[in-house]
Amino acid sequence: MSIQHFRVALIPFFAAFCLPVFAHPETLVKVKDAEDQLGARVGYIELDLNSGKILESFRPEERFPMMSTFKVLLCGAVLSRVDAGQEQLGRRIHYSQNDLVEYSPVTEKHLTDGMTVRELCSAAITMSDNTAANLLLTTIGGPKELTAFLHNMGDHVTRLDRWEPELNEAIPNDERDTTMPAAMATTLRKLLTGELLTLASRQQLIDWMEADKVAGPLLRSALPAGWFIADKSGAGERGSRGIIAALGPDGKPSRIVVIYTTGSQATMDERNRQIAEIGASLIKHW
């Protein structure tokens, strides 16, 4: 067993022997301040990774656009098919120029040779490549099948209805392509620590998230040296922004954090800054 596999296998073990965790309302004060600064709703939840206990939450059962955070769930569904012998990570998928959609920095470079399922998941999570996500959605049967996968996990809230990039439209009061912070946090925890996926697939999923290259201005910008984070960000229309993450000190994750916002007129930089400040408060009061 590799060191990384050992780390993920012992996530519940280490967490069980940690000192009790206590909620700190100071972080919620910052979440509410972010709402004021952005002029928009902000949803927040913080779960203990081992027990699933909610440590703090704000608007945990209000719907927010998922945006690209759905790509972690998508690759979880792909990995479940791999575990069941219905898919192979090494299978190569070929596609054409007509398949390319807006923001496809990886797939646009491989029109000639195609990409493997493993490479597509890596591109979808680490670079948020939209064509990679659409190609992977095709392998599982489309958005409705991802929703069905989530329902089978016990998540009857999260739903995907459309493809990239239309799913980022974020129309107010439109339930399409949305989740709730509580539902997303619980589902992410199941994917990373539950028995739904094999140990190898859980490790692969967290490795992809740990290698995320496009979430630097968010929670990662607030992390002290030595902290662990595996995350996936999302951005959408109407001032929408979000991030889902597993993080913790001492090089291992111990909490799940989900943050979503929508309806702001603020710039992307300002949305990023507010999420980073929430992260800084979380870490300060850990």
Rank of each mutant, 00 (worst) to 15 (best):
residue 16 A to I: 12
residue 237 E to D: 14
residue 126 T to H: 06
residue 11 I to V: 12
residue 226 G to F: 06
residue 272 N to K: 02
residue 284 K to P: 03
residue 48 D to Q: 08
residue 58 F to D: 02
residue 76 G to V: 05
residue 222 A to L: 07
residue 236 G to I: 02
residue 202 R to P: 01
residue 221 S to C: 11
residue 97 Q to E: 15
residue 195 E to S: 14
residue 262 T to E: 09
residue 19 L to N: 15
residue 47 L to D: 01
residue 121 C to I: 05
residue 142 G to S: 06
residue 209 M to I: 02
residue 239 G to S: 04
residue 86 Q to K: 13
residue 179 T to A: 03
residue 199 L to P: 15
residue 172 P to D: 13
residue 114 G to N: 05
residue 185 A to Q: 00
residue 130 N to Q: 04
residue 45 I to G: 03
residue 182 A to W: 13
residue 267 T to G: 14
residue 30 K to T: 12
residue 75 C to S: 07
residue 256 I to H: 00
residue 73 L to K: 01
residue 67 M to F: 04
residue 282 L to T: 09
residue 269 D to G: 13
residue 125 I to D: 00
residue 286 W to R: 02
residue 241 R to N: 04
residue 170 A to N: 09
residue 136 L to I: 09
residue 279 G to L: 04
residue 62 E to A: 09
residue 48 D to Y: 04
residue 116 T to F: 04
residue 106 V to H: 08
residue 150 L to E: 02
residue 66 M to Y: 04
residue 63 R to L: 08
residue 158 T to F: 07
residue 84 A to K: 11
residue 137 L to T: 07
residue 139 T to M: 10
residue 123 A to H: 03
residue 29 V to C: 13
residue 162 R to E: 05
residue 212 D to T: 06
residue 282 L to P: 00
residue 48 D to L: 04
residue 27 T to L: 08
residue 80 S to Y: 14
residue 117 V to T: 07
residue 278 I to V: 09
residue 145 E to G: 15
residue 119 E to W: 02
residue 87 E to I: 11
residue 187 T to S: 12
residue 25 P to W: 10
residue 195 E to H: 14
residue 245 A to H: 00
residue 253 P to Q: 08
residue 169 E to S: 15
residue 161 D to F: 03
residue 265 Q to R: 13
residue 265 Q to P: 11
residue 211 A to Y: 09
residue 124 A to S: 10
residue 112 T to M: 10
residue 182 A to Y: 14
residue 185 A to D: 00
residue 77 A to R: 09
residue 63 R to T: 09
residue 157 V to L: 10
residue 40 A to I: 05
residue 156 H to D: 14
residue 8 V to C: 13
residue 151 H to G: 12
residue 101 V to E: 10
residue 90 G to S: 12
residue 218 L to Y: 02
residue 32 K to E: 09
residue 231 D to Q: 05
residue 193 T to V: 15
residue 105 P to E: 05
residue 60 P to V: 12
residue 269 D to W: 10
residue 147 T to V: 11
residue 279 G to Y: 03
residue 226 G to N: 12
residue 114 G to D: 04
residue 173 N to G: 14
residue 199 L to R: 10
residue 268 M to L: 10
residue 180 M to Q: 15
residue 177 D to N: 04
residue 20 P to N: 14
residue 197 L to I: 08
residue 284 K to R: 13
residue 88 Q to T: 13
residue 77 A to S: 10
residue 101 V to I: 10
residue 2 S to Q: 13
residue 279 G to A: 10
residue 152 N to C: 11
residue 280 A to T: 11
residue 20 P to K: 14
residue 223 L to G: 03
residue 10 L to N: 06
residue 259 I to Y: 04
residue 212 D to Y: 03
residue 266 A to R: 13
residue 168 N to E: 04
residue 186 T to L: 15
residue 121 C to S: 04
residue 34 A to V: 11
residue 112 T to E: 15
residue 199 L to C: 15
residue 41 R to V: 09
residue 229 I to T: 02
residue 14 F to V: 11
residue 65 P to K: 04
residue 250 D to E: 14
residue 268 M to K: 06
residue 21 V to Q: 05
residue 65 P to E: 02
residue 255 R to I: 06
residue 277 E to V: 12
residue 184 M to N: 01
residue 205 L to F: 05
residue 134 N to A: 04
residue 264 S to A: 08
residue 136 L to Q: 01
residue 183 A to T: 12
residue 6 F to D: 05
residue 107 T to A: 10
residue 157 V to D: 15
residue 161 D to C: 06
residue 159 R to T: 10
residue 245 A to I: 02
residue 104 S to D: 02
residue 246 A to L: 15
residue 94 H to I: 15
residue 112 T to D: 15
residue 242 G to E: 01
residue 3 I to D: 08
residue 81 R to W: 06
residue 239 G to R: 02
residue 104 S to V: 04
residue 262 T to H: 14
residue 52 G to S: 07
residue 15 A to F: 15
residue 120 L to R: 00
residue 60 P to K: 15
residue 144 K to Q: 14
residue 4 Q to L: 09
residue 38 L to Y: 09
residue 53 K to Q: 12
residue 77 A to N: 13
residue 270 E to I: 13
residue 40 A to K: 03
residue 47 L to R: 03
residue 49 L to C: 08
residue 246 A to Y: 11
residue 263 G to K: 06
residue 278 I to L: 08
residue 232 K to H: 00
residue 246 A to R: 02
residue 25 P to C: 09
residue 189 R to F: 12
residue 83 D to G: 05
residue 207 D to V: 11
residue 100 L to R: 04
residue 142 G to L: 01
residue 105 P to D: 04
residue 100 L to W: 05
residue 47 L to C: 09
residue 7 R to N: 11
residue 176 R to H: 10
residue 57 S to P: 02
residue 206 I to G: 10
residue 52 G to L: 05
residue 224 P to K: 07
residue 86 Q to A: 13
residue 73 L to N: 05
residue 79 L to S: 03
residue 5 H to R: 08
residue 188 L to C: 09
residue 187 T to G: 08
residue 207 D to N: 11
residue 98 N to L: 14
residue 93 I to M: 03
residue 16 A to K: 06
residue 243 I to R: 00
residue 207 D to I: 10
residue 150 L to V: 13
residue 31 V to C: 14
residue 271 R to I: 10
residue 267 T to K: 12
residue 131 T to V: 05
residue 56 E to V: 08
residue 19 L to F: 15
residue 85 G to S: 10
residue 77 A to Q: 14
residue 283 I to N: 03
residue 11 I to D: 02
residue 53 K to P: 03
residue 68 S to Q: 00
residue 95 Y to N: 01
residue 96 S to C: 10
residue 203 Q to Y: 09
residue 254 S to G: 12
residue 72 V to A: 08
residue 173 N to W: 15
residue 94 H to D: 11
residue 213 K to T: 08
residue 251 G to I: 07
residue 14 F to M: 11
residue 10 L to M: 12
residue 144 K to E: 15
residue 286 W to I: 04
residue 41 R to S: 09
residue 181 P to G: 04
residue 52 G to W: 05
residue 65 P to T: 03
residue 81 R to A: 10
residue 83 D to I: 03
residue 40 A to H: 04
residue 153 M to V: 14
residue 142 G to P: 02
residue 7 R to Y: 09
residue 135 L to I: 14
residue 221 S to H: 12
residue 83 D to W: 02
residue 202 R to S: 14
residue 96 S to H: 11
residue 193 T to N: 15
residue 36 D to I: 15
residue 233 S to D: 00
residue 120 L to C: 06
residue 204 Q to C: 13
residue 44 Y to T: 02
residue 208 W to A: 03
residue 226 G to C: 09
residue 202 R to I: 07
residue 228 F to M: 10
residue 155 D to I: 01
residue 190 K to H: 13
residue 2 S to T: 14
residue 212 D to Q: 07
residue 283 I to W: 07
residue 180 M to S: 15
residue 149 F to L: 09
residue 61 E to G: 13
residue 119 E to Q: 14
residue 16 A to E: 05
residue 241 R to C: 04
residue 63 R to C: 07
residue 163 W to E: 11
residue 81 R to S: 09
residue 7 R to C: 08
residue 88 Q to D: 13
residue 171 I to Q: 15
residue 193 T to D: 09
residue 86 Q to Y: 12
residue 281 S to H: 12
residue 40 A to G: 13
residue 281 S to V: 15
residue 233 S to A: 08
residue 122 S to D: 15
residue 284 K to H: 09
residue 282 L to F: 08
residue 171 I to F: 13
residue 149 F to K: 07
residue 103 Y to T: 05
residue 80 S to I: 10
residue 105 P to T: 06
residue 131 T to G: 14
residue 257 V to T: 06
residue 129 D to L: 00
residue 263 G to E: 06
residue 220 R to L: 03
residue 68 S to C: 01
residue 242 G to N: 03
residue 219 L to P: 04
residue 168 N to R: 03
residue 136 L to G: 02
residue 98 N to E: 15
